[in-house]
Each structure stands twice: as structure tokens, then as C-alpha cells.
Simulated scan of single mutants.
Amino acid sequence: MELLTSPFEVSFVFRALIAGALAAILCGCIGTWVVLRGLAFFGDAMSHGMLPGVAIAALLGGNLILGAALSALVMAAGITWVARESKLSQDVSIGLLFVGMLAVGVVIVSHSQSFAVDLTGFLFGDVLGVRRQDLLFLAVATGLGVLASVLLHRPFLALAFDERKATTLRLRPQWAHVGMLAITALATVASFQIVGTLLVFGLLIGPPATAYLLFSRIGAIMAASAAIGTLATYVGLLISWYAETSAGATIAVLTVLTFFAVLIAKRSLMGYDRTAK
């Protein structure tokens, strides 16, 4: 038992566990809608599109999370505007903004070699460097994300399964879509410091996708996703402590491995049932 608890007696590891659990709850609720709506590419693009804001904030000596939030806001607004004005598919508008924002970020970063360390933390996360104020910010973001998921449950549900029916029911699917993009951006911005922009995708997609294999009700998927993400955070921190690996990357890898383990187990059980019959 001491092997399972002793690392968390260290204050920064314990803070990392709390932060990871909050991020798992936030990403579990919002990631459920991302998976059901098919917005995985948007989540990936958003996690990279925050780079310009973070780079500019670092250059000016400002708050990195604020810079990421402003960059995410610009990207979400840009995607919505391009899709509406050009009549092109949403994937095209996401791809254009994804490439543009990432390229601008790389240009800014390449201009100053002093960004090298900050960029590494931005890409791969620094879960063990979470501060008390980070926990407060993440707790507020988690509360807002959960509240939005509850209040907008009906329009989100209609939008995820039948956009035309959502229009018939006067649920304003366009505004529901914008709201879904906004809370996805919220989850990405709030969690990027926990697992990094390249790895936030793990908590946002991995646990909800795994829960979707096991449950059919939205509430159950969200709850299971939060539990899976929290467990991955706990186990990932344990592994990284003893194996001396990157904590954020280890957590993200575990979320993906859990999905494939559940998928293979489910397929095996289905095959066994068919054989038994």
C-alpha cells in the first residue's frame, strides 16, 4: 500500500493528482459531446491553435493561460465565420485556421530561442508544476464546464444526433454548435497546462471514447469518462514517479491504451458470445 500512496505525500505530486482529477471531470463532460458530435479534429486543432497566444504572452511577459484563452477565442470565432461565409465544410475551416494559427505560433517561437523551455512545457505539459492558483482556475473552469453541459444538455443532445430535428424543435442548432465549440475551447485552455497542448487530446477524447464503448446513456458516459480519466491520472503519476517518465505524456498514453484494452475486451466477449450461441 505504501508504494501506491507514498508519492502523493509529496505536495506537488498531490497537487498534480487533484489537478488531473479536475481536468478529467471537465474533459469527461465536454469530451462526451466532442465524441458524439464528431468534433475530435476541432479539439486537436484547438490544442495546437493556442500556440500564438501563448507565444505572444511569453514574449510580453504576460499570463500564458490568458494568452491561450484569447488565441482559442480567435480560432473558434474564425472557424465559425469561415464556415458561414464561405459555405465550405467545417473540416475545411478548421483545417485552415489550424494551419494558420500553428504556423504563426511557430514563426513567433522561432524568432526567439528563449522560448525553447516554455515551448517544451506548452507542448508536453508540466503537471508536476501545478500551483495553487492553477488549481483554483481549473476548479472554476470545471464548474463552468459541468454547468454548461447540464444547462445545454437538450440542445446539445439534439445537435449531436439530428441537427434537422433540433431546428424543428427550435433549439437553435447554430447557437448550440457555437456553444459546443466554446466549451471545447474552455476545456482545452483549462487543461493544456496539465498535459500540454499535444496531450490534452488524451483526456478530451480517450476517456469519453472508452466510456462510449461501455454505456449508452449520456450521463453514464460522462460519469464513466471522468472516472477513467481520474484513474489514468492516478496510475500515470505513479508510473512516472517510479519510472521517471514524463507525467503528462504517461497519463495521455494510459487513456489511449485503456480505450484499446476495452475495445479488444469487448470484441473478444462479443466473439465468445457468438461462439457460445
Score class of each variant (00 low, 15 high):
9 E>F: 00
12 F>E: 00
21 A>K: 02
24 A>F: 11
25 I>F: 10
32 T>S: 14
34 V>M: 13
34 V>N: 01
36 L>A: 05
37 R>D: 06
37 R>Y: 07
43 G>M: 03
50 M>D: 04
50 M>H: 00
52 P>I: 09
64 L>C: 07
64 L>R: 11
65 I>K: 07
66 L>P: 05
68 A>M: 13
72 A>E: 09
73 L>I: 09
74 V>L: 15
75 M>D: 03
82 V>G: 06
82 V>K: 09
84 R>Y: 03
87 K>P: 04
87 K>R: 15
95 G>L: 04
96 L>G: 12
96 L>T: 14
98 F>H: 14
103 A>Y: 03
106 V>C: 04
106 V>A: 11
108 I>A: 15
115 F>I: 05
117 V>T: 14
123 L>D: 11
124 F>H: 02
124 F>K: 02
125 G>H: 08
126 D>M: 13
128 L>R: 11
130 V>S: 11
135 L>P: 07
140 V>M: 01
142 T>K: 01
148 A>M: 04
151 L>D: 06
154 R>V: 01
162 D>Y: 10
170 R>M: 15
171 L>S: 10
174 Q>L: 01
185 A>W: 01
188 T>M: 12
190 A>E: 02
190 A>L: 01
195 V>C: 12
197 T>W: 05
197 T>I: 08
203 L>M: 06
205 I>F: 12
208 P>H: 10
209 A>W: 05
212 Y>R: 15
217 R>G: 08
217 R>D: 15
217 R>I: 09
217 R>K: 11
220 A>Y: 07
221 I>K: 08
221 I>V: 15
224 A>P: 00
225 S>A: 14
227 A>L: 15
228 I>R: 06
230 T>I: 10
232 A>Q: 04
235 V>E: 03
237 L>Y: 13
238 L>H: 03
238 L>W: 04
240 S>N: 02
245 T>I: 04
245 T>E: 07
248 G>Q: 05
250 T>Q: 11
250 T>I: 09
252 A>Q: 10
260 F>R: 02
265 A>P: 11
267 R>D: 09
267 R>M: 12
273 D>Y: 14
275 T>D: 14
277 K>D: 05
